[in-house]
């Protein structure tokens, strides 16, 4: 019975990420869902910030893609689950990408590592040359 299920509002809607404004869209969706899941203001802020980092990662390093944000529940546990997908160059060394300060773009290199600290789970599935899918969950 404790199969994870998505929320009743038709599950997670897909948001295309093609330009900077779309990152803002992802942030807003993440805020809605995190509030719906009953997170506190600080937790909502952490989730929104991680969503922003990951969406920007999809845009900058993946050359664009899509994101899905939804509420998940197993038993009494509730959470927000976010999926980011791109068909960009992929990440050659995932462990290295998660380390603070590692960057291929012009950023601070806090995106992936920082996001992992803000969330409960972060799994990166990447094939060089094929693309990257990041699944991120924050449990209450």
């Amino acid at each position: 019975m404790p199969q994870p299920r998505t929320d009743s509002e038709g599950g997670a809607l897909r948001i295309e990420i093609a330009e900077g404004q779309d990152v803002v869209q992802v942030r807003q969706r993440a805020r809605e869902k995190a509030q719906a899941a009953g997170f506190t203001l600080t937790e909502v802020t952490k989730i929104v910030t991680a969503a922003s980092e990951l969406a920007r990662n999809t845009l900058e390093h993946g050359g664009g893609g899509w994101a899905e944000v939804g509420v998940v529940a197993t038993g009494v546990r509730r959470g927000v689950r976010m999926v980011f997908h791109d068909e960009g160059p992929g990440i050659a060394d995932v462990d290295q990408a998660l380390r603070d300060g590692f960057t291929t773009g012009g950023g601070l290199g806090l995106g992936l590592g920082g996001s992992r600290r803000l969330l409960s789970e972060l799994t990166i599935d990447s094939v060089p040359g094929r693309g990257t899918t990041i699944v991120a969950v924050r449990w209450k």
């Binding site: 952490k46 806090l110 920082g114």
Partner: peptide
């Protein structure tokens, strides 16, 4: 800077 934002920034490493 709001409390929640400050906490998140610290957690983020900034």
């Amino acid at each position: 800077i709001q409390p929640a934002v400050a906490i998140t920034l610290v957690e983020l490493g900034m």
